[in-house]
């Protein structure tokens, strides 16, 4: 191969990111959605005052900031890529690219790069909006931000790979959103994103623990919720090693599934 993989990958990240911000629907449902939800939850429950264990009460907005960061990671990775790639498969984009010397690795590098550019921007703006507009106290300890960094990077990479794998599921580009969005919604409801985690029954918490979103949300809570909140988690602890292991397993699953399901076109035998 004479064309450099780095050149191809960088070129892909450029066009992918441009396309992302020019598509009004992804901009709303993936990029802005967590902002809208954070605003709605903060406004809707503002009357209920502060919540949480005695001595560690926080505002509703502060409770939902880590949840919406987790939602953003999930949407930017899984929902965004699963719908995007299914569409590219059905509208001829992948067929055209498959006829060029673009390596599949370069193609994926472009997708994952796009997820990181947009996901980072989204998380940064969410935290900024939370701190400046909603007046949420942000953590000051460096170790909290270290935790944030690894949960974010590991979570986003895992979600991007799972999105690529999930794109094989819809049978047509038209059905992609209808297949992918409900899966995302259910996971967000049972993983402590929209509903406060400790309000969910044990069995539902156990089901949610099988999927990665619960662990991303838990990791984010450990960063942004004050001391005392860990008592509301399963086993009364943030269980960060558990977060790392669960996300690590899903990362491998996503990688393997992406590798075996991806085709430029559906080639007949």
């Amino acid at each position: 191969m004479t064309t450099n993989l780095m050149t191809q990958g960088a070129s892909r990240v450029g066009v992918e990111t441009k396309t992302y911000f020019r598509a009004a629907d992804t901009l709303f449902f993936t990029f802005l959605f967590p902002f809208v939800m954070l605003a709605i939850f903060s406004a809707a429950f503002s009357a209920s005052g502060e919540v949480g264990p005695p001595g560690a009460e926080i505002s509703i907005a502060a409770l939902y900031l880590p949840a919406m960061l987790a939602a953003g990671i999930f949407l930017s990775g899984v929902q965004n890529l699963a719908i995007d790639i299914a569409l590219e498969k059905s509208n001829g984009t992948l067929k055209r690219l498959g006829g060029t010397p673009l390596s599949p690795v370069g193609y994926f590098a472009g997708k994952i790069g796009q997820v990181f550019v947009t996901g980072t921007l989204q998380a940064g703006l969410l935290i900024l909006a939370g701190g400046l507009v909603l007046g949420i106290d942000l953590p000051t300890e460096p170790e909290k931000w270290v935790t944030f960094a690894w949960v974010f990077v590991l979570g986003l990479t895992t979600c991007a790979l799972l999105g690529i794998a999930l794109s094989a599921l819809p049978r047509s580009g038209k059905s992609a959103a209808a297949v992918v969005i409900p899966i995302g919604l259910i996971l967000q409801f049972i993983s402590g994103v929209y509903l406060q985690w400790n309000m969910l029954p044990d069995w539902l918490q156990n089901v949610a623990s099988l999927f990665p979103l619960k662990w991303i949300a838990q990791g984010m809570r450990s960063v942004f919720l004050p001391e005392g909140w860990e008592s509301l988690e399963q086993n009364g602890s943030w269980n960060l090693p558990g977060v790392a292991i669960a996300l690590g397993i899903w990362l491998v699953v996503g990688f393997v599934l992406s590798r075996i399901t991806f085709r430029w076109i559906r080639r007949d035998a």
């Binding site: 064309t3 396309t19 020019r22 598509a23 509208n91 001829g92 984009t93 067929k95 055209r96």
Partner: peptide, 16 residues
């Protein structure tokens, strides 16, 4: 790298 393909009509999003 050595071939060029002009397919029949495609339906790409055309945002670029």
């Amino acid at each position: 790298q050595r071939i060029g393909i002009v397919l029949q009509s495609t339906g790409e999003t055309g945002l670029l």
